[in-house]
């Protein structure tokens, strides 16, 4: 069963009709041949799909970035890496299941991989707290980055979070401090750090993972200081103005490259990453591989220096 976004309604109708037609035909006794009609519907659906995705508005991109069928952190780890060995716990308080990470091989090269996992059904979404990390998640990330630094392993982060978890315990255990320290750690390690925003890059909770040498963004991923809904309710005093807010915030991968915040946009299959997972995995893998290649051979000091300079330079580019 495929999930459709609200703006994909016309597409859902046509694709639904084609599927229905084929289902009826396969169940009929004389195996009615409906391929001609169904094929015509497929063609129409394709036209609609091309049309819908030709110029996605920023708000629609936010919806695609949050699409429930979109590949998540776990899917990328399973498909892009081998020998994934999860490592858990912050050694202080607990293990945060919103953050997964550990040792793995990327093209046989040992690396540390980590990211936020949103889950793909009710049970797993609850288990992963919808990808909203608590302080323990950031402290686990710090631990893993320290380990990578000690053993000279590159770090790959996969970012997909609505933001850090707004909870009582999270605040009491130092959510702010944990995020600040994780960002600081990103800027201290002397190994290559490549980050890919695979869905939602939500505010400080994303910064703590995405302060990298190279920031890759999937074509329909977003990275923002605040959610469009949050921004709309504060600045427009109306949460329904999220379209306007999404527009104003300039949160798309395309705008972020212009602003010098992101380095590369990874093209997605037509209709978004969820429509062709294999193609998406190949594209993301290639992008990570070429970033790691660019960074390989750089001395720790040079990596740190260039990473810091990259962030100091942000703000000198405009959208024009």
């Amino acid at each position: 069963m495929q999930n459709y976004l609200e703006f994909e309604k016309p597409l859902a109708e046509i694709e639904g009709k084609a599927a229905e037609l084929r289902a009826i035909a396969s169940q009929s006794e004389d195996e009615m041949n409906v391929e001609k009609e169904a094929g015509a519907l497929d063609k129409k659906a394709q036209t609609i799909l091309v049309d819908l995705y030709k110029n996605l508005t920023p708000w629609r991109k936010c919806q695609v970035a949050r699409h429930p069928d979109r590949p998540h952190c776990k899917d990328y780890i399973e498909n892009l890496f081998t020998e994934y060995t999860p490592l858990q716990g912050d050694r202080v308080f607990g293990d945060d299941t919103a953050v997964m990470g550990g040792l793995a091989r990327f093209d046989d090269q040992p690396v540390v991989v980590m990211g936020q996992e949103k889950g793909n059904d009710t049970t797993s979404r609850l288990h992963h707290n919808f990808g909203m990390a608590r302080p323990e998640g950031y402290r686990k990330a710090i631990r893993l980055m320290d380990m990578a630094d000690r053993f000279g392993l590159p770090v790959v982060t996969l970012v997909d979070t609505p933001g850090a978890f707004p909870g009582r315990g999270a605040e009491e255990r130092g959510q702010s401090e944990a995020i600040a320290r994780s960002t600081e750690k990103c800027l201290q390690i002397g190994v290559p750090l490549v980050s890919c925003i695979i869905g939602e890059g939500g505010s400080g909770g994303a910064v703590a993972f995405a302060t990298a040498d190279r920031l890759l963004m999937l074509e329909h991923s977003v990275y923002s200081v605040i959610s469009p809904e949050g921004c709309a309710s504060i600045l427009w005093k109306d949460a329904e103005k999220m379209r306007e807010a999404a527009e104003a915030l300039r949160l798309t991968a395309q705008d972020l490259v212009k602003l010098g915040v992101a380095d590369t946009v990874i093209p997605e299959p037509l209709g978004g990453a969820q429509r062709d997972r294999e193609q998406t995995f190949v594209a993301v893998k290639d992008a990570i591989a070429s970033s790691l290649k660019e960074l390989s051979g750089k001395k720790p000091k040079q990596l740190i220096k260039e990473r810091r300079q990259k962030f100091l330079d942000i703000g000198s580019k405009t959208l024009a």
Binding site: A180, T183, E184, C186, L187, Q188, S203, G204, V207, T211, Y223, S224, V225, I226, C231, I234, L235, A248, L249, R250, L251, L256, L259, V261, R308, F311, L312, I314, G315
Partner: peptide, 22 residues
């Protein structure tokens, strides 16, 4: 918090200021 009117550039002050403190 961050100045929303500067979008992602306001968010980038988190790493930028951290670099300075280092």
């Amino acid at each position: 918090g961050a100045r929303m009117q500067e979008g992602i550039l306001s968010l980038m002050q988190m790493p930028r200021t951290t670099v300075a403190l280092q």
